[in-house]
Design a binder for these strands. Structure first.
Lengths: 223, 223, 223, 223
DNA sequence: GATGAATGAGGATTCATTCAT
DNA sequence: AATGAATGAATCCTCATTCAT
């Protein structure tokens, strides 16, 4: 106590808490909140289940701590996209950064998708604390930007969600990709390819769309 | 009385097995295989849990029956896309049909996404029986088509998966959309808008890409 | 109804009842009353479990019918031993007959042993209806006989039970013998050997004992 | 308080695991593995059924622990018989010791007989771990001994099994004996009588048989 | 901070039995 | 005489949580 200036909060005091969070993140991502078990999480940290309660008051609190720790930096990063100048080069770079960050902690994407599927109180909280603020600001940036003028105003949320689905989908569906494509989607090679591909999609949907704007806009313009 | 030889037990219109499948589909979609409980499913049909076993030999079999009943028509529909002529009009129409069909049974998408997340034996089976045949044939069609010549050959699987993520994502994330966008994503209005949007995306990624093909092949030099 | 003079009782009316009894005997012998299941018995006869109740009012009644049908002839046979003249030749022959009869229906022995182990109401009934009358008469015969005069009077019940254990034990322990001796105890060869052996034991314990009587009876005589 | 660091929970004297084993032994002996229920065992120890799983990972493991604890000393004892000198006095004493030991834990015999009846995986294990080693060594001892020269070589296993049936039968059939003989077979008196009787049988079948050996070898020509 | 033991609620499944057809 | 469907009670076992040590 004399030599080590521990923080006041239990979460930061010991590496044990961190190890618990790591294990919990893994299990929650794999099995969802309901599917993950305190027993398994404890076993992953080679701890008695009862010991988890010395660090977190319960399963729900542990879950929230995982979300907090994992999502904050991701969302901060996304939020920073606001300041982009929407030049193709910037978009490329920012797409790249985001994918790399997600690739570092691939469990988080699955975690969010689990929540999105399940609905319920956890999702409500996640939406309130993280998703809604993020999306509303991203939307605002979209709207201010001249870049996306090709899209109708009421299509911008859909475009935003599409990027959400595309990005999270890739990570979340990793187990499926392994089955269907018979390749490890987290391999350096696969990530590289996906990153290139995503940049291309971004260009086609955001950058080039602007260029095409004047041509054959007969489809949605009629609505 | 002469024409309806149904027992007095089944007051509801549909045969019991069908009603069980309906309830099971709902619960499996909401909570995943592990998260859904036979007890809850039975309660939804106002049946004793033991009665489920008169219709299906177990949870796993019930799950598979749900998949079979729900996915067969969808996948048959997707498979039929093979015969498309890739004209913008055909693509528009087929995109439309697919989305409408999925909208009729919005739980299925969530069910697949649950599987994709969870991995495990169920996914392996789903991949073997449904996904892999479908994707390999879709890919073949992609490849034969002159339409998508703009994409590198090794990008076609990614493009395919992107459509997977985009389409399933919309339905699967419905609970999240409700929270974040504060709108019912299954409303006629929202569906209409999403359908229009998806057609536009398809056009931008598949049809127009072809047109752009000759221009600045593979780089973002257009900016 | 006109052509077939069916007996009034359901048990005798159809071969189905008989087939049910056969299957029930097998299952009760293998797993005991509690361990055997109506479902399995029905499956053995390729019948719906509900159909059993058209022939027997319940599990308990079916069990009793099995006992009745199976044990009566055996016990009649044993009872007939009363009239033996206790000559070595007669004993040999009667031992032989008994073992052959039991070998024909090896399940019965296991059935009795199951009851003997379990105790409870079924055993009480079995004892009242079958075992007690039989043993008391067998004992009386023993006592009248000059043959067994070597044994103290209070040892005769134990001698009787010993034969019970020896005979039933061989059949009841068949699964164990298979494991331990690695041989099929129901094979003709094994049965032959066992029969010869049992006759030898009977001779040693009953016939020869008489002869030895005068020699070194220091052990029990002192009690 | 200083010398007894036990928690307040365990008011009863023995440690909980031991009390569970006691109760389990009783129930498994009475109803067999399949027939005994964790619920009942827990109730016997006044414990929540879930608590059993804090001490044993499952029903099967509990069963094996019961076997291990109960059978090891018995089988060690039997194994020690190997060193007997086959003198009448030694046999008397050893028979006595064995019966006394079994009488101390009369449930074990029923437990083994249950297994012998049921067959299945448990029996296979019991045979492999306990019975087969024991019997093969006992047989070897029999064979080396000059004592049993009267018996044919292929009769020795049967003789061995006969002792098995006689000894276990007495204990296993206790419920039946109570019904049929209307006496408690575990009473001191009954045990004393049975012990005397068993010694006599052993003498007649093993010791005296040797003496008779020269007389009328193998036939019942004595009549 | 860690743990062994205890527990109530709930998990899937089996069982004997009933009843209308 | 046979059956499909229904059911309440019981089966083994898991879960998150608590508590004394």
């Amino acid at each position: 106590m004399a030599t080590e200036p521990k923080s006041r909060h239990a979460e930061a005091s010991a590496p044990t808490s961190e190890r618990i969070l790591d294990a919990a993140e893994l299990h929650f991502a794999a099995d969802g909140f309901a599917g993950a078990s305190m027993r398994d999480i404890a076993a992953s940290v080679e701890l008695n289940p009862a010991s988890l309660y010395n660090h977190f008051p319960g399963k729900q609190a542990l879950y929230e701590a995982v979300l907090e720790r994992g999502l904050r930096p991701i969302f901060l990063l996304l939020d920073a996209l606001r300041t982009t100048d929407w030049s193709p080069e910037s978009l490329d770079e920012e797409t790249n950064t985001l994918l790399e960050r997600l690739a570092q902690r691939p469990h988080l994407a699955r975690l969010i998708v689990h929540e999105a599927l399940a609905g319920g109180e956890n999702l409500r909280q996640l939406a309130r604390d993280w998703l809604r603020p993020l999306y509303s600001r991203a939307l605002a940036t979209f709207r201010e930007s001249a870049t996306t003028r090709e899209w109708e105003d009421d299509e911008l949320p859909l475009l935003l969600m599409s990027f959400h689905h595309l990005v999270l989908g890739y990570f979340a569906a990793a187990p499926m990709l392994r089955e269907v494509m018979e390749e490890d989607p987290y391999s350096h090679e696969a990530m590289e390819r996906q990153s290139r591909f995503m940049r291309k999609i971004v260009r086609l949907l955001v950058v080039e769309a602007r260029t095409d704007a004047g041509r054959d806009e007969g489809t949605h313009g009629g609505g």
